[in-house]
Write a protein that binds this DNA or RNA. Structure first.
Lengths: 392, 392
DNA sequence: GTAGTTTTTGTAATCGTTACCACGGTAAAA
DNA sequence: TTTTACCGTGGTAACGATTACAAAAACTAC
């Protein structure tokens, strides 16, 4: 009953094995192999379950070729005005959305940039992301946001996703765990521009956007000294991050410049988790001779510190003055309101993307990494205000 | 001086127009058109600026065909174990990353899901997003996060990007402005599953994940009544959102069930912006007969309200008790700490994606939308605790 | 009209993958 | 010994766009 697809013979047919569950035949007469055509599903009533309009749909609706449609859509000059209008109208009518996958493949450009951040629970990174989008979107790029969750493993997975998505560029802020950089240097090997912001790691020759952490820390600690504090501790961040080292150095330099002794036991390092912040806070407060002020490497740490101090009924700022870093919105709301160093968040995001776009759009030639250092602003609130002088 | 590329004749050549800046010619003898070959740039020293490894690179390195490589990489069964190993090793050696663009194009599946949220400055949506990723990533999907910024216009732009990116599905929470739904029904027309969570709009036959807003509001207001409050106001949300209506209704029902009068002037509507929250708070506090308690539709509003009350030296909760909704982390830190209704955020995200994946992976056949309503939990803190009874 | 142009439209290759089919060799079953 | 089953691999057409190039159509100017 099986007929050869060529000669139509029925007798010269022999079975020729089963491949992936499908019976195949061999016609001795024609010396050819074949299998019964896959029963092309009795034309499922044109209900392709999902089908979005393509330029081919527009083309056949108007009886023109798809290259004409393509040219009309991208506003190429050499196209008849009427044709263009017809195409544009039909595109609206059929609700055409260009297939970014196909477009990216054809142009080897995805018009997508990747953003890697450690977290976005605190509003710090969200503000930066918003700034980044404000520059990226008008320039025709959209963004993929990856959250590394302060985990190096996740961060590596993120870089792979971005690499696989063929993003045109990446801006990133590393986790507190990140010490190796191979996963980031892959971007460079693949020729994908990378800009680091805020939390950077050394050893990578890329553009960078940061705030003047040393200066900020120096200002914060100096303010504490001016408030009369003499035994100032530092709840420090991971030292693999430049941000951690710079703020520590700012703290040290401020003490030194004001002739205050440096006491190693007043410097504790935390790993960016709230639990660790609490542990470190307790360690400081449990010292035989506890500090009269603490400069925390960031606001989340300072806030945990305030909670610990409050639970011990330590009066703030009378017994303990506190300064944070970042100006999280919560810092203004907590009691007592936290003195902190504000950073120009959306400007960080904007600048990072500007650097990135510059590098993406640059034709050929080596790219000289750029760097921008933004200033912080000391916001004085209750948590550090011992003298009755009001904050101006 | 121009020679025909075929016959080599020089005399029979005529100009034949300029296409995109390039002179073309016509040979009368051969009846053929041609242009001077583009001066194939003297082979830019193989410095392709950017080139990521493809399966073709692996194939030619091993001298096998690309289909074999493809099968090896996707762990197809009918492939020789040695071949597979060789391919896998070479893939690592060449640092191969599959091109998701090409893959998505070939399979008409992007393995990407879109998430649309109004904002992610407050930690509410970030927690939901994290929950969503926890389900999506292990299932082999990655996510594109879009922020509508509480703007309908941006929301529409977001849907277009997702449509163009050919996402396999979308979970969304609408803006306070959203009243029309065409942009969302486009997903349905294109056969792209959609799940709404938290802030939904009616009129769309899709799966939904929400919390029991009515019940939550009822519990919050009942708690205020139990604390002895009798003139309870409601700082309500936009009424185009079901969430806004449900919470209002819970408030009304609680009053009614406890035989308290309903006073229209005690209900004010805000548009989800902080500025509007402050205006509404002032309006309530300026009433000739101000309320002794306020139930706010969410925590950000309650927090703004607390700020306004504090600036007027209104004692909380003695003169004014306050209850919020959402349990933002800040609510626990502010002074006085805010009584609020906690929602199982990551569960919202997880459930939404579970519904979505179910719909994506379902073969053919109509899909019956599902719905899950999660419970809230009343967290009693200082802002509402008038009686000295301690919160249990 | 017609040669000489210019404008507009069509054709086909390409991007990186997958999917389907072809086909040769060998082992097992008849 | 002759079928038939099983394996492993190669070839090629999609997928939906862009783009270089070819060709047809529409103007000019004589």
């Amino acid at each position: 009953m099986v007929k050869c697809i060529k000669c139509g013979d029925v007798d010269a047919i022999a079975k020729a094995g089963i491949v992936r569950g499908k019976q195949r035949y061999y016609c001795k007469r024609c010396d050819c192999y074949f299998s019964q055509p896959t029963h092309a599903e009795p034309e499922a009533p044109a209900l392709h379950r999902r089908h979005q309009t393509t330029i081919m749909d527009i083309a056949s609706a108007l009886n023109i070729s798809k290259s004409t449609v393509s040219r009309a859509l991208q506003g190429h000059s050499d196209i008849n005005a009427n044709t263009r209008k017809a195409v544009l109208d039909m595109a609206v009518q059929l609700d055409y959305q260009p297939n970014l996958l196909a477009l990216g493949l054809a142009r080897s450009r995805s018009y997508t940039i990747g953003i890697i951040v450690p977290e976005f629970i605190n509003s710090f990174f969200p503000y930066i992301i918003i700034g980044a989008q404000q520059v990226a979107n008008p320039a025709g790029y959209h963004v993929i946001i990856c959250q590394s969750n302060e985990s190096l493993e996740t961060e590596i997975a993120n870089t792979q996703v971005l690499l696989a998505s063929r993003v045109d560029g990446v801006i990133a802020s590393v986790t507190g765990e990140t010490k190796t950089l191979e996963h980031f240097s892959k971007f460079q090997k693949a020729g994908i521009p990378l800009v680091m912001f805020n939390r950077i790691c050394e050893g990578l020759d890329v553009s960078k956007v940061l705030v003047d952490d040393h200066d900020g820390a120096y200002k914060g600690v100096t303010h504490l000294i001016q408030q009369g504090c003499r035994r100032i501790a530092h709840l420090a961040g991971p030292q693999n991050l430049q941000i951690g080292r710079e703020r520590l150095q700012g703290y040290l330099d401020a003490l030194r410049d004001h002739n205050l002794p440096i006491d190693e036991e007043l410097i504790v390092y935390y790993d960016l988790s709230n639990a660790s912040a609490q542990t470190c806070a307790r360690r400081l407060l449990d010292l035989p001779q506890p500090p009269d002020a603490i400069f925390a490497v960031n606001d989340p740490a300072a806030i945990q510190l305030l909670l610990v101090a409050k639970s011990r009924n330590i009066r703030i700022p009378a017994e303990l003055a506190v300064v944070g870093f970042s100006n999280e919105p919560t810092s203004a709301l907590i009691d007592p309101a936290l003195t902190t160093l504000a950073q120009p968040l959306d400007e960080i995001g904007k600048t990072a993307v500007q650097f990135l776009l510059q590098e993406i759009e640059q034709e050929e030639g080596p790219y000289a990494p750029m760097q921008r250092i933004l200033k912080t602003e000391l916001i004085i609130r209750e948590s550090s205000l011992r003298t009755k002088a009001r904050p101006s």
